[in-house]
Design a binder for these strands. Sequence first.
DNA 1: ACTGAAATACCAACACT
DNA 2: AGTGTTGGTATTTCAGT
Lengths: 154, 154
Amino acid sequence: MDNIDRNIINLVQAFGRATNAEIAGACGLSVSAANDRLKRLQERGAITGWSARVDPDAVDLGLLAFIFVEIDHTGHNERFIAAATLMPEVLELHHVTGEWSYLLKVRARDTKALETLITGRLKALPGVARSHTHIALSSAKDNGPLPVDVSGDD
Amino acid sequence: MDNIDRNIINLVQAFGRATNAEIAGACGLSVSAANDRLKRLQERGAITGWSARVDPDAVDLGLLAFIFVEIDHTGHNERFIAAATLMPEVLELHHVTGEWSYLLKVRARDTKALETLITGRLKALPGVARSHTHIALSSAKDNGPLPVDVSGDD
DNA sequence: ACTGAAATACCAACACT
DNA sequence: AGTGTTGGTATTTCAGT
């Protein structure tokens, strides 16, 4: 992982459909070398996959919320993680420090769908003692690229 | 936006480098039709771009944190948003309901870098009254795909 | 590891249904 | 909107450095 690799990572984060020729041009490599490096970055696991960025409003998921959850008995943690991870509305599930056990990022169609998710499905899971929801009114930035420093060591 | 479009969106969210032939095969279309639909989804803004998924650990950003920020005077909001959005460590910036003004998702190398970010840069912005940080100990799910329902109306 | 070239696969425009 | 064809590009492999 040298600076060229980091440049490639920055490039393909911003432009996931960049061609090998474009990567090569930006990094001063031949097309083959760019292709080789991209493949190696994937084989090593630095690049884990590719994705289209989708406008939530276009797919009727205008409501974004962050939900803190507290689990009351230690034995329930694994089951909660397994169940919540499988819920498609749960985009993220983090184990966090502080007064709460988990922080979930969820998207839903509207407040009604959010209510169903929280009271009907999340709070129905064993061990969920309480939850606290923050609704996002607007997002100035969402899913930004990882800031990969290109002036680190080679 | 019909069910075929929603299928395509689900597919390219999971496999951002899916070829038109693969999309066509999955949706029962010809390659040309798949290409046309993909183009139209981008022209309409449903698909906003393409991105490589990157392993944070591979680029030395092992620390994930969520930071709540309170802004004390209304006039400072715009400037805070503008400044925080430009910080590369700030992956997300949401205006949220509740006792706090904003919720930020940030990534940093380690606790030292996080401290510099919070005390040296975020809290230095005008209007930042206080902040509260939740550190993610682990993430069972991160940046999951938007759950696009394929059984909605055509 | 990188280069350059050859073979293969892919995309995008076209005429037509 | 969809299909099949076609010409132009992109990708990928390989021998050589």
